[in-house]
Amino acid sequence: MSIRIATPARSPLFCDVALAARIEGAEAGLIAGWSTTAGRRLGDAAGFVRPIAGGVASFAEADSPLNKVAGLGFDGVPSTSELDEVENAFAARGAAVQVELAHLVEEPIGALLTERGYRLVSFENVLGLALAAAGEPRRAALEGVEVRPSGAGELDHWVEVVADAVAIPDTQGVPSYEEFPREVIVNAMRDLAGASGLVRYAALRDGVLAGGASMRMSAGVAQFTGAATAPAHRRRGIQSALLTARLADAAAAGCDIAVVTTQPGSRSQHNVQRSGFDLLYTRAILVKEF
Score class of each variant (00 low, 15 high):
168 I>L: 12
168 I>Y: 07
168 I>S: 11
168 I>A: 13
168 I>N: 10
169 P>K: 01
169 P>F: 02
169 P>T: 02
169 P>I: 04
171 T>S: 12
171 T>L: 11
171 T>A: 15
171 T>M: 08
172 Q>H: 11
172 Q>A: 15
172 Q>R: 14
172 Q>S: 14
172 Q>I: 01
173 G>E: 09
173 G>Q: 10
175 P>K: 03
175 P>F: 08
175 P>H: 04
176 S>L: 10
176 S>Y: 05
177 Y>E: 10
177 Y>R: 11
178 E>H: 07
178 E>K: 13
178 E>C: 08
179 E>V: 11
179 E>M: 06
179 E>I: 12
179 E>T: 13
180 F>A: 03
180 F>E: 06
181 P>V: 14
181 P>Y: 09
182 R>N: 01
183 E>D: 11
183 E>V: 09
184 V>R: 14
185 I>F: 07
185 I>L: 14
185 I>T: 15
186 V>H: 03
186 V>P: 00
186 V>T: 15
186 V>W: 02
187 N>Q: 13
188 A>Q: 10
188 A>M: 10
188 A>S: 15
188 A>R: 11
189 M>E: 11
190 R>F: 01
190 R>V: 00
191 D>N: 12
191 D>H: 10
192 L>F: 00
192 L>M: 04
192 L>G: 00
192 L>Q: 06
193 A>M: 09
193 A>Q: 08
193 A>S: 13
193 A>W: 07
194 G>H: 11
195 A>L: 07
195 A>E: 10
195 A>P: 06
195 A>I: 04
196 S>R: 09
196 S>H: 14
196 S>A: 14
197 G>A: 03
198 L>M: 15
198 L>K: 06
198 L>F: 12
199 V>S: 14
199 V>W: 08
199 V>F: 06
199 V>P: 00
199 V>L: 14
201 Y>S: 03
201 Y>T: 02
201 Y>K: 00
201 Y>C: 00
201 Y>A: 02
202 A>V: 14
202 A>N: 06
202 A>Y: 15
203 A>Y: 08
203 A>P: 05
203 A>R: 06
203 A>D: 06
204 L>D: 10
204 L>I: 05
204 L>P: 06
205 R>P: 06
205 R>V: 06
205 R>F: 08
206 D>E: 12
206 D>W: 01
207 G>N: 08
207 G>Q: 07
207 G>W: 02
209 L>E: 00
209 L>D: 02
210 A>V: 06
210 A>G: 04
210 A>P: 05
211 G>W: 07
211 G>F: 07
212 G>C: 03
212 G>F: 09
212 G>R: 05
212 G>S: 07
213 A>V: 13
215 M>Q: 09
215 M>E: 04
215 M>R: 05
215 M>A: 03
215 M>Y: 01
216 R>S: 12
216 R>A: 13
217 M>P: 00
217 M>V: 10
217 M>N: 09
218 S>Q: 13
219 A>Q: 11
220 G>Q: 01
220 G>V: 01
220 G>E: 01
221 V>K: 09
222 A>R: 12
223 Q>T: 10
223 Q>D: 13
223 Q>M: 09
223 Q>A: 13
224 F>C: 02
224 F>N: 03
225 T>A: 09
225 T>L: 05
226 G>T: 02
226 G>W: 03
226 G>D: 03
228 A>M: 04
228 A>F: 07
228 A>L: 06
228 A>I: 05
229 T>M: 02
229 T>E: 02
229 T>L: 01
230 A>W: 01
